[in-house]
Design a protein around this nucleic acid. Structure first.
Lengths: 206, 206
DNA sequence: GTCTATAAGAAGATAGAC
DNA sequence: GTCTATCTTCTTATAGAC
């Protein structure tokens, strides 16, 4: 990894732990292993480092969203993946989603940084909203909608069903971000949530 | 309101908008209508202002929690309130909870401040956890448990039912904190959530 | 308790050598 | 591209008069 990217990486780590204002360019430089003035050969100023992190993220999200849309438009691909859905595969879906959000290093650091900085300006509020509200709900709506179509789940209101699926996952995620020591407890609660979700929305064999 | 309390009030407003590090003692003093050095006659330093806000909050919470426990222990009082529970009164409960969290000025500012500062140290993480996870879940568990006992709702897992009740409320609340313009939309979603919650857990007349 | 003046130090950023 | 030296500005906090 070249210096320019290492700066972003270390800055993201620090911003996610302390917030933008509590991280000094000196701290970032120290972690990268250079002196503070050298940073300015790579980025115009401190704000430019932050902006570059957001830009990089937006690019990743675009790719993700693009990929999801293409899949969403391609019934053959989706059908292949979700043809044999049952209780256990739905529960696996929820667990995997949770564990990905929780343990993917880049995702986790970015989420914490955004949590701290979300009220700083409208653009950041919007990024947060897209990332942790619109996108998960619309993506999961598609998946759960497929399960409804396949007779695994049953409801006349897929968006609200999706909210019932996602909101507890989100809440438990924030709990773990604050106290990683509660991961095990959260996973147990998550599993109970998913089993009860299945009881409520699952279509028992007719 | 005396100067000492006005300092806390204005500081809380500013901290909730910009975060502790981005608020300067000068800003607080300006809002109060005094000069910065005068602040130091009331509080030892900037940190002491922040700590006093947390302390004041903890006191309010203790009172709240105390009051709730007493009610929870007093079946006659609870019975009076929740004797004639039905679908509409449960929906009203959810809506009122949401609107109280959303519009109570002190509550709202404190929640936003804590959201920004939650990763700063363990104590703050703990306050957040208590306030927006443990306390709502245990209080609502008690209320929803009462409704189960009265035959309004039905489940064999009250804690998870409570999670299904609260998590969407919490998620919608964070949406409104970021974008107050979405309050109307959130209220519509909230109502749909509560109606579907009732469909899922409600005991239709037998 | 409030003010003016000011100290003390931190943090972002630049200049210019290598 | 990295360094040392340095500038500038901002921010907290104190001193001491009223």
């Amino acid at each position: 990894m070249d210096t320019k990217h290492r700066i972003l990486d270390e800055a993201l780590t620090l911003f996610s732990e302390k917030g933008y204002a509590n991280v000094y360019v000196n701290d970032i430089a120290e972690r990268v292993g250079i002196k503070a003035p050298s940073l300015y050969k790579h980025y115009k100023n401190k704000q430019a480092i932050f902006d570059a992190i957001i830009d990089e993220m937006n690019n990743r999200f675009m790719e993700q969203a693009g990929a999801l849309n293409i899949n969403g438009m391609d019934p053959t691909k989706d059908a292949d993946i979700y043809k044999n859905m049952n209780e256990e595969s739905m529960i696996e879906l929820g667990k995997n989603l949770f564990l990905y959000y929780l343990h993917d290093d880049y995702t986790k650091r970015f989420r914490k940084m955004l949590t701290i900085e979300q009220f700083h300006d409208k653009e950041l509020a919007n990024v947060y909203q897209q990332q942790y509200y619109e996108m998960p709900l619309s993506y999961q709506s598609m998946l759960l909608g497929l399960m409804v179509a396949q007779g695994v789940l049953s409801t006349d209101n897929v968006p609200i069903m999706t909210l019932h699926f996602y909101a507890p996952i989100y809440l438990l995620l924030t709990v773990c971000d604050r106290e990683p020591g509660r991961e095990e407890e959260a996973l147990k609660t998550l599993e109970e949530h998913l089993r009860q979700f299945d009881k409520l929305y699952g279509r028992t064999i007719e």
